[in-house]
Design a binder for these strands. Sequence first.
DNA 1: TTGAAAGCGATACCAG
DNA 2: CTGGTATCGCTTTCAA
Lengths: 333, 333
Amino acid sequence: MATIYQVSELAGVSLATVSRVMNNNTKVSDKTKQKVLKAMAELGYQPNSIAQSLASNRSNSVGVLVSELHGPFFGDMMSAIEDTLRLEGKHTIITSGHSDEERERASIEFLIGRKCDALILHAEAVTDEYLLNLESRGIEFVLINRYIKQLENRCIRLDNKQGGYLATQHLIKLGHQKLAYISGPKWKQDAQERLQGHKQALTDAGIDFDEALCFEGDYQQSSGSKGLDWLCEHAPKFSCVVCANDEMASGVMTRARQLGINVPSELSVVGFDNIIYANYLYPTLTTIDYPIYEMGRMAAKYILKQVYEKKNLDIESVFVPKLEIRDSSIEYV
Amino acid sequence: MATIYQVSELAGVSLATVSRVMNNNTKVSDKTKQKVLKAMAELGYQPNSIAQSLASNRSNSVGVLVSELHGPFFGDMMSAIEDTLRLEGKHTIITSGHSDEERERASIEFLIGRKCDALILHAEAVTDEYLLNLESRGIEFVLINRYIKQLENRCIRLDNKQGGYLATQHLIKLGHQKLAYISGPKWKQDAQERLQGHKQALTDAGIDFDEALCFEGDYQQSSGSKGLDWLCEHAPKFSCVVCANDEMASGVMTRARQLGINVPSELSVVGFDNIIYANYLYPTLTTIDYPIYEMGRMAAKYILKQVYEKKNLDIESVFVPKLEIRDSSIEYV
DNA sequence: TTGAAAGCGATACCAG
DNA sequence: CTGGTATCGCTTTCAA
């Protein structure tokens, strides 16, 4: 692998000059520039980015933390970020935290050690203090789907409560009075907020929230199935179930089919997230649109603006959920 | 951020000694070791991995290239790799190539520039020559889902042809005689192989392959829908359709429903890959199991063995597809 | 506009 | 077992 030294030798200029044409920030005469370019081409020179990072304390790469590397939600998030950053020549390093405090922290520290210029975090398990401390360490970062008051301007988020509200309100408007709910893990902020929205919608409609109609899932498809089983066995009668995400909703629909319960005529189902295949389920799933791709883009833009000094970028930090009505929910008769 | 220099100063030893306790490969007296450890703790010292890489020409990270960051297939692949590598303290850097030659090459060069110790590549667009050249450059890598004779031992792959064969044979055994086929992009190796398997199965059953019953999709869900439309309009009558992947199969089933065609009674559908939600579709999808998680693990193990000198790892490079019979395919009457 | 030289933060070889 | 020192490949003042 050719080094900058060999290039400078072949071109008959100094190291510094070669470096200058690479980063073309300083003026270099056109003639020398051509010589250098030619030498680089001839040697098939590729700068060693590790050395660049060490010297400049800049890596042109941003670190991303997701909960899981698989799953439609994080897939879209990663794609959005990489697409956006790549256009500006920045690279993306991805790690996963598995919703576990220890592992999230380890991943974040790894990214920092890797001298990422900034971080985009979907951090669920790590404490507020840790994140606050990150800021005081001078680390540049932005949070997706988490709200911490003191870090407000670094939070790109969806109004989850409003989303939960919309989902439930939709069913109430359809005449449903007995609504079951399958929540995400209660310790997760978004799960809490979505549930709060649900309760608020009930209250506003004069319906009492019944703990017995509420099952705590884990956001996985299988827990939707488990949830439906549990509800059928332990809960009072209900005509619909609102799920805290689409994957659990999918689990519910599949299990319902196995149990011989028709969706939507006997049971309406509503999801949350609007993941890509919500529209390919049968029946197609009524859900709350979570513009995760847009939010991923926005997070990347934030970094571009704050860290890489791109101007003319409007940052918007709170996104609004939208109800997407499809076939899995119908009027209660 | 503390440096090794400050640690050595505080501990009253040389740089070299500090380095030695970090990498504990050379003997260091217990007493000095404790002094150093204490100093490190006191300063909250974290080695700078960029500097380590530059100096050691080792990064303890392996680069991964996938086609897309989203999608169930690549999600599982990435998860498998990261899970396996992390257990050994190695890190994963992920990039995407979007099935585009230019971008695949750029990503690979980025990973190399990043001094990854090895690469795991799902490279579709880059030429054989390029890959061959990679080897002669002395780069350690392993290929997933691609076969190049000269690189045979570096190829972790599924017998795609056999998979295509099984899918088609299954339908023929059920009595189908008019089989439509929706392939992946013809320029992709796996798409070719699966199609070959399909043709072989037809031939073995004495059925002629009919070009008019074959639509070329792009492995996306939407092209499954488009494919069915096209087939209904242009192709002779058929009683089933075999799809080169599950996502297109899902598209076919959804479109069939919209067209009022019952699956499976009027149309049997078979997919390929056995992605996680194949089992949540309605009807559940008959498909060919692609053990991508296992293959991702295996690729990681190969690297662990070859590059990081872990012993006692059995490497298996050709995986066997398995037919997974579910509800989307039934006997032809 | 260009060159010389001092780092960046570690590793690793060679002596002692 | 420990210390000194050259080195990795590049960036970035500082002068010229």
